[in-house]
Design a protein around this nucleic acid. Structure first.
Length: 443
DNA sequence: TCTGGGGTCCTAGGACCC
DNA sequence: TCTGGGGTCCTAGGACCC
């Protein structure tokens, strides 16, 4: 009898780095591997990464760090300011390994990627996933978890459950779905945030299973819009969430809180010019140009609501560009229009929008493009790439910049220099149970 | 005293046009 | 007292994600 070649069911895997930023800090300090570690947001405000050991002490992701100073002191939690250059470097390494292992990898965020697992022989899902985990951890020092399921939403649930039960990989096969979803609060479903969860609870929908089995489509649509309908389909095994392929950004922003109150207009201009520099660099990195820029200034959102002040303005350039100079001039004009004396500004930001590809750019008849700009910008970008962000910048960014945010506990490690690179060979014997290599070679 | 930053998508409602 | 209807486009705001 002829064997019929079956097409295997669609399956998605999500690889997730565990407590990514904390793990990155640990790569350079192996002795922290079993100790509580947290990483703070910009301005050392909130905890944006909490290691499992720190979670056990009651530290929660997103909570303001000043509320938990006592716990941190008492339990000697290691605290780091965020170091995005380091995290970006390690993220690229993780993604590179995935690309080598699998043909269809879609990076979803700095620490996550979806992998099309449809080609994996049925029954081998967890074995394959464990091998991926092992290789990533061995070569980067970052612990990772993989969840697999018929849809991306189910894979996400699998990954959450894997972490909970301290497994490296978990496949939620159709036969296991009901039990798993009954055990999953609806708010734990990817795409159901606190707002949606509250609405669902009002209608007695508490678990992922109750949500999946809910027959009243118009109700789901009324409560959660078309997004909710799609999520319910995903839980039913019907794929409808596209994990965006890291497409070109439609908007690029750069916003920061200041390290202190800022009253001075010139300082605001410096800050905003600096943010424009960051955003234009990103714009050029994705080979785009843009036409719109908006700027906002605001006071602290946590003080008396009656004194809270925010305003913003926008300008459209005559033609799309990625010239930091043009955007900076526009941004400064906006700051001058918005500025109010005696106002304790705490945060400012800029948005660049109406982004389009640089190739196929509309040329303006009346504006002769200065041919020196493009080489200047690319020289600036390569210098800053080599020597660090902001090494070369517009004069309007200022030199003192003492409005800048706080980051007192920034780890200085980056992977820009050979002597900072991680030694990973030492880990090999322990993981694989083989004899140690002859020498510890730096990667 | 101290409370992040950078994105995307969807919808309702207003403006405008014919 | 009565005062069109349908379509499109834009924007603000709300929701979510990491």
């Amino acid at each position: 009898m002829l064997s019929i070649r079956r097409s295997w069911p669609e399956r998605w895997a999500i690889l997730d780095c565990n407590a990514f930023y904390s793990s990155c800090e640990r790569v350079f300090r192996p002795h922290l591997r079993t100790l509580p570690v947290v990483v703070l947001s910009n301005n050392d405000g909130c905890m944006i990464s909490v290691s499992p050991e720190a979670k056990l002490l009651g530290l929660k992701l997103g909570a303001p760090v000043h509320e938990v100073r006592e716990i941190i002191r008492k339990h000697r939690v290691y605290v780091f300011s965020s170091n995005y250059q380091l995290y970006g470097d390690l993220s690229r390494r993780v993604m590179r390994i995935l690309d080598e292992l699998h043909p269809d990898v879609l990076q979803y965020s700095i620490d996550e990627a979806f992998i099309d697992f449809s080609h994996v022989p049925p029954g081998d899902e967890e074995k394959w996933a464990q091998e991926v985990c092992l290789r990533v951890t061995r070569e980067t020092g970052i612990p990772v978890t993989i969840g697999i399921g018929r849809t991306k939403t189910i894979a996400k649930i699998a990954s959450k459950r894997a972490k909970k039960s301290k497994q490296k990989a978990m496949y939620l096969a159709d036969a296991d779905i009901e039990a798993a979803l009954r055990d999953t609060p609806v708010g734990d479903v990817w795409g159901i945030g606190p707002g949606f969860e509250a609405k669902l609870k009002m209608h007695n929908i508490r678990t992922a299973w109750e949500f999946r089995e809910h027959p009243n489509t118009p109700l789901i649509r009324a409560l959660l819009t078309v997004t909710g309908e799609r999520l319910r389909d995903e839980l039913r095994g019907i794929s409808c969430v596209e994990p965006g392929e890291m497409a070109e950004k439609k908007m690029i922003s750069s916003t920061r809180s200041f390290g202190r109150r800022v009253y001075d207009r010139i300082e605001l201009e410096e800050a905003v010019s600096t943010y424009v520099g960051f955003a234009c660099e990103k714009l050029r990195a994705q080979n785009s140009v843009a036409r719109g820029i908006s700027v906002f200034l605001r006071t602290s959102a946590f003080e008396d609501k009656t004194t809270y002040h925010r305003n913003d303005g926008q300008i459209f350039l005559v033609s799309a560009t990625n010239d930091t100079g043009q955007f900076t001039r526009a941004a400064i004009d906006i700051v001058r229009a918005l500025y109010r004396r005696d106002t304790p500004y705490k945060k400012a930001g800029i948005f660049i929008f109406e982004i389009s590809p640089r190739a196929g750019q509309q040329v303006d008849l009346f504006q002769v493009e200065d041919s020196r700009i493009a080489p200047l910008m690319s020289a600036m970008d390569s210098i800053n790439k080599k020597w660090g962000r902001g090494t070369v910048r517009m004069a309007s960014c200022g030199t003192k910049q003492d409005w800048r945010m706080l980051c007192e506990k920034r780890s200085n490690k980056t992977q820009l220099h050979w002597h900072d690179l991680v030694e990973v060979r030492r880990e090999v014997p322990q993981l694989l149970g083989t004899s140690p290599p002859a020498q510890n070679k730096r990667r």
